[in-house]
Design a protein around this nucleic acid. Structure first.
Lengths: 191, 191
DNA sequence: TTTCTTTTTGGCATCAGGTATTAAAGGTTA
DNA sequence: TAACCTTTAATACCTGATGCCAAAAAGAAA
């Protein structure tokens, strides 16, 4: 009985499933010449989900990816803007922003609204996000209207760094809060 | 019972599955208020395959397209994924991601890549970003290929919260770094 | 060699999400 | 009334797994 050592079999197993993720455990036993129990222990150790889970993940990825890409311009409609002071934007969660199975908005869309607003509120030719400390307080759901309020807290008119605080609400409920540090260049100009 | 219900139900059934192909027959009974046998007869008549076949078809379609198409326009093409351990995604900065005047990527796109990856790497039915602490180390520019690496640092297999660290590079240079706290649901649960 | 440990195998119960078949109840319709 | 359509029900079976327990086999240590 010339079995391969465990390590090598694990490598082979990963390789085989990488090449063809549609293989059942039973098909794997044929290729690796070990019992089905061994295959299952191996998958457990390697944290490889069962066939059906793999298919489901693939299906979800393809389904969601079609619906999650459009992130073109500024996210949300800016309804009020006082440069270097504060701003408000509105953003409605629609199909393409949510996880298909739960109807919960992907975090980066909510972030994108806040980030866009934080950048927009800074009155400078070049404003870039340097860092942010953010909190998703409760999930935003399909159909909900998010309104974000941004307040410039420091670095109002000078160059260097500005601090912007953003709060996002759905109705009375806060769904997101973030502290942004925005880099600003020297030139003060409007477009 | 009126004469029409069947026709109408068939239309509704098609519509529901069109919107969300992940529905089981049992979930359909709740929405259509008929027995599971009726749902199955309906699927038979409409030649709609069972859930598992639908998932398999979707998976096959996406698998084929992943092999043929580069998938640039998605928020990162996941090229490696070890659930609950680590993951890698690639994202190329193109026109629609940058400030037109400067050619610098809007922060939320870089964030979106990292966030998508941090969520994808968590092996759970429902994984949502709870909070994040992020740093934009240097701007990413038009045409640059961002290479994000995620590592699950804590909360690997249990429910509750997981910590995921993400580093994004362009070549050797780090452009972004983020610490994400991902909320995860109670492992395998039925929908 | 014997003992201990790791690895592998086997068996059995159970699950989800179905298929396939047969039967029966209810209303419709000629 | 019989013939029919629609709906519900009951049952057996399928696949690709999981979980658990036990036992055999192989390797390493004393």
């Amino acid at each position: 009985m010339e079995r391969l050592p465990k390590r090598q079999r694990h490598q082979q197993l990963s390789r085989l499933l990488d090449e063809n993720p549609f293989l059942t455990d039973r098909e794997l036993t044929r290729q690796l010449k070990v019992s089905i129990q061994t295959i299952r222990l191996d998958r457990l150790e390697l944290a490889i989900p069962e066939l059906r889970e793999r298919l489901k993940l693939m299906a979800e990825r393809s389904y969601d990816s079609v619906r999650s890409l459009p992130l073109h311009e500024v996210i949300g409609d800016i309804v009020d803007l006082q440069l270097d002071k504060s701003g408000i934007s509105l953003f409605e969660i629609s199909e393409e922003h949510v996880f298909s199975r739960t109807g919960i908005a992907r975090g980066h869309h909510v972030f994108a609204q806040a980030n866009s607003l934080a950048v927009a509120v800074i009155n400078d030719e070049i404003a870039l996000t340097a860092s942010a400390d953010i909190r998703f307080i409760r999930p935003a759901r399909l159909g909900e209207k998010c309104f974000a309020k941004a307040y410039v807290r420091a670095g109002g008119e000078q160059k260097g760094k500005a601090k912007v605080e953003v709060f996002t609400y759905v109705g009375e409920e806060m769904v997101f809060q973030g502290n942004f540090v925005i880099y600003r260049s020297a030139g003060e100009s409007k477009t």
